[in-house]
Design a protein around this nucleic acid. Sequence first.
DNA 1: ATTTTAACCGGGAACGATGCCGGTAACGAT
DNA 2: ATCGTTACCGGCATCGTTCCCGGTTAAAAT
Lengths: 344, 344
Amino acid sequence: MNKPATIKDIARILKISTSTVSRAMRNATDVSIETKNAVVALSEELNYLPNKFALSLQQKQTHTIGVIVPNLDYIMATMLKGIDEVALEAGYTVMVCQSNESFGREIVNTKRLSNSIVDGFIVSVSSETKVFDHFKKIQAQNVPIVTFDRVIPELTVPSVYLDNKDGGSQATAHLIEQGYKRIAILAGPKNMEISNHRLNGYLAALKKYKIKVDLDLIINCDFNQDYAFIATQELLAMKKRPDAIFTISDRMAIGAMLAIKDKGLTMPSDIGLVGFNNEPLLSLLEPAISSVDQPAFEMGKAAAKLFIQMMHNTEDMSNVKEVLKPKLIVRESSQKNQKIKRIK
Amino acid sequence: MNKPATIKDIARILKISTSTVSRAMRNATDVSIETKNAVVALSEELNYLPNKFALSLQQKQTHTIGVIVPNLDYIMATMLKGIDEVALEAGYTVMVCQSNESFGREIVNTKRLSNSIVDGFIVSVSSETKVFDHFKKIQAQNVPIVTFDRVIPELTVPSVYLDNKDGGSQATAHLIEQGYKRIAILAGPKNMEISNHRLNGYLAALKKYKIKVDLDLIINCDFNQDYAFIATQELLAMKKRPDAIFTISDRMAIGAMLAIKDKGLTMPSDIGLVGFNNEPLLSLLEPAISSVDQPAFEMGKAAAKLFIQMMHNTEDMSNVKEVLKPKLIVRESSQKNQKIKRIK
DNA sequence: ATTTTAACCGGGAACGATGCCGGTAACGAT
DNA sequence: ATCGTTACCGGCATCGTTCCCGGTTAAAAT
């Protein structure tokens, strides 16, 4: 019906020029107090809001951050909250696109958001993505990118991530200390950085405790519950089956748990289990599942802070890396030795 | 470094006018095939992408939908996936803002997105929101709004929602049929529409089975796990305590479950329990919790479809309401009568 | 040979805002 | 009386794109 009022409408009605209106609207210099009052009064009456596109067209800034995430599970949602909080504080609006773990969707999303619709990107890559040309292209146009959680090593951009190796190491060492002997790992796809680092942590822990690596106990499977279920079934069907499993995600831990129960085995006595992410639901399961906690909210905040710093600073920040520390949360599923009270 | 190429750059290099470039770029009419090829070739070489702001400034369309949601839990994330799918298909980009169940944040979000940054809104309101002026203001500017899940009755806009009364009724009737006599309900805040409708369903089922309503068994508490825990503790401390609880969300069901276990009672024999939303984790709990399933993905899709219809159609759609049907999923927590196989 | 028609292209305004630059009026100082 | 200063305001270009309108050329029709 009534289209939004523009600066011209105000100028026309007050019989002054658009420049004057523009000035009156933001700084008080070079405008008489009466004009200013008149403009402000009328603008409120007309419900005037400056057109963002006209502004962006001129100033080449949108104050919008494009955030591309692989999914919206608990951990991501928590990270997003962190991003949101910092971004909002700094006057930025956040545009979230989920790639659904799909390479194609990721490309579509970057295309849509790039070319001036957003000032830059905060990205966690899809598990499918093996080629990073779409991000390189963006970077070549000098559009700021910050990666978080799932970073892109071949892209020299500031990034925030977990010390995944440490996490894998903590989990594995814990299982060893609990007396488990044959510890399997359900790792993710081979192209996933975080998976490989967690695997490296696993290997490091074995080495530290002088346990020989058994390649049959290292499974690369897809990053979800169903595949983990199948992979665990196969593990449990082995002649010399493992007596503990470390999965690099909680979703996979749940798949493993179901397979273990399905087979009639019990945790932690027959099989020990440790997951990764520490989703809250783990404490509700029986047995409650141990998991490596990551400070997701903090990670989101750190990523957004890095981004905003990059927008303000002129100096090169591409080598800034922020590494957060994981923390193993021990619950029943891996407590072979001592019985403890259930953690709520 | 190299700022993005514009239509002017192409025109200058090829020594033709910007109009011709513009035409060559989208429709083939009025452009010779050679010119068109040359333009396309060069535009690819220069990595040309049309500036969205210039376009939006002209055409008053952004092809962006602002989606405002109260949180990013499982059910919302699923709805968002539905919205995303339809929107992407139709050439729209989705901008997600979470209000964090906060009235203030919701207002900030609408302010930021409105005034031409988005073509319209798809909204599910915060549980805190009792006043809807910020949405009315948007509507007054003729910006399209679609509400979903948590709708706003006093706003005449197209909307998609669940038959919440039916859901509440199904859950309650099921508990009655299982032989539970004193059925309590944990409802949400009194200003929440969905809560009241589920409560109405509860009342309707009681009436149908001629069970007298006991007001002490109707608890309005906040929409989360911790409050539900406390509320359940109070329920269980009653002289004539209830023998079944229906909670209007799964989060609340979990809170109730914890309180029940804490007290040393068992489900379904001592207490029956039914939740709402059917989050996947419910099937993993012991006992697995019954819940009312809602077609979240479908709801998201329906909302986006409605929105896009509204953008295309000129006719008034403000009275279009789409009501989806819930479906009770029975699991162990409410199976007092017959023992059944565990549903995975 | 002249007119019609089609094919192709360029010029300029417009979208809404900002910012530079220049102009005018009033006033005080010399 | 003239100049300089201050306070205030308007004109115009600009951002990148599209659209309307008009113009030129060459081929086709008369």
